[in-house]
């Protein structure tokens, strides 16, 4: 299935800003993050089609997944 993946902030470094990618049915948000070698502890806001989701959420054909790193500094 075709998924549009959008990466933000430090996740773009050495990766991409937006890419259309193929994943098998049953792929979760965690699977996509792992395939991009995004450390789990760095994952902040995760959105599918502009709605908050958790790591175990399964993707569907045509979804847009947006991943933001966790920012905690002050």
């Amino acid at each position: 299935m075709n998924i549009t993946v959008k990466l933000f902030a430090s996740f773009r470094t050495g990766r991409f800003e937006i890419e259309s990618r193929d994943y098998p049915p049953g792929t979760s948000v965690a699977d996509v993050a792992d395939s991009l070698k995004l450390p789990r502890h760095e994952l902040g806001i995760m959105m599918i089609n502009s709605r908050h989701v958790k790591l175990d959420r399964l993707l569907a054909e045509g979804d847009t997944l947006a991943l933001f790193p966790l920012l905690g500094g002050g």
Binding site: H41, P69, L71, G72
Partner: peptide, 12 residues
């Protein structure tokens, strides 16, 4: 935004 992991550290 942060979930419930109170010990989480950001990318900073």
């Amino acid at each position: 935004m942060y979930g419930s992991d109170k010990s989480a550290k950001g990318v900073e």
